[in-house]
């Protein structure tokens, strides 16, 4: 057989083209994502709304924490709830937004459709990881700013510790979300499985029972769960009076190292 006479296939691998295509995909996906009001509400607004709602409605949350060590004895009670709300923002995006997104891409054949183009479907997952990180920054940022401006919550004592724990919480929880989405054939299946993990996780991260009054045995269990460790580590970083959250940081790092490769390995593209 001779080669095909007209323009034969060549592997087009211009990095510039790939780069532009990735950001075109990103821009389009972001715009389309913003058109889903419920998804956007839970990913971006729900945590701040819960924080402000509780802070303004529950009288105890606006009273100063009189028995806390200075300078925290002048901060409003809602302060101890802010780190939990940040953990809630991470948990909501990784367990409610992400798994449904990815499983729906699979269900609708979008991943398979991309496999037929020069743009590998891995890039779509990558784009949405970026979008979810941005959503998290907006969501957590809004909670912090809202808490400080509206409720008078003081800023973190150790912002770098908070940032470190936040980054590790994100990697651990996003890996968990990826794993939840790895096999589900339908968006609904992934949603159900995500919820099954989401609600207990919220319990151990202090959304239902604040960490400050949570029984010790629950805190013990929470330490070994990704979202529990996240809330505890964020709290320690925010108040800065219990030292560096070494155990929590290690737990989050281990979860990431276990869950991420597992999620990638089990992820089905069709």
């Amino acid at each position: 057989m001779t080669a095909v006479e007209t323009t034969g296939p060549v592997r087009v691998n211009h990095e510039g083209l790939r780069f532009r295509a990735f950001w075109t995909l990103f821009g389009t996906e972001l715009r389309v994502w913003l058109r889903e009001p419920t998804g956007v509400f839970f990913a971006l607004i729900f945590p701040s709304l819960l924080l402000l709602g509780l802070g303004l409605a529950v009288p105890d949350f606006s009273k100063p924490m009189a028995d806390a060590p200075p300078p925290w004895n002048e901060a409003p009670g809602i302060t101890s709830y802010l780190p939990t709300i940040i953990a809630l923002a991470v948990g909501t995006i990784s367990l409610t937004t992400m798994p449904v997104q990815f499983a729906t891409f699979r269900e609708k054949g979008i991943l398979k459709r991309l496999s037929t183009t020069p743009m590998p479907p891995q890039n779509l997952i990558g784009v949405h990881m970026v979008i979810n990180v941005l959503a998290l920054i907006v969501s957590a940022g809004a909670a912090v700013v809202g808490g400080m401006v509206v409720l008078g919550v003081p800023f973190a004592a150790d912002p770098l510790v908070v940032l470190l724990v936040l980054v590790l919480s994100t990697t651990a929880m996003f890996s968990l979300g990826l794993l939840v989405a790895a096999r589900a054939e339908k968006g609904q299946t992934a949603s159900g499985l995500g919820m099954l993990i989401y609600f207990p996780s919220l319990m151990f991260s202090g959304v239902w029972v604040p960490l400050s009054v949570m029984p010790d045995w629950m805190q013990e269990i929470g330490l070994y769960l990704p979202l529990g460790a996240a809330a505890q580590g964020l709290t320690m970083g925010w108040f800065g009076n219990e030292g560096f959250p070494l155990a929590q940081v290690l737990v989050l790092a281990v979860w990431t190292l276990v869950l991420f490769p597992l999620g990638v390995k089990l992820f089905r593209w069709t």
Binding site: V12, V32, K108, I110, R113
Partner: peptide, 15 residues
């Protein structure tokens, strides 16, 4: 062949 083969799959595959 990705650059040169266009594929339309059985099921609709868009958001």
């Amino acid at each position: 062949i990705r650059e040169h083969v266009g594929v339309q799959l059985q099921e609709a595959a868009l958001h």
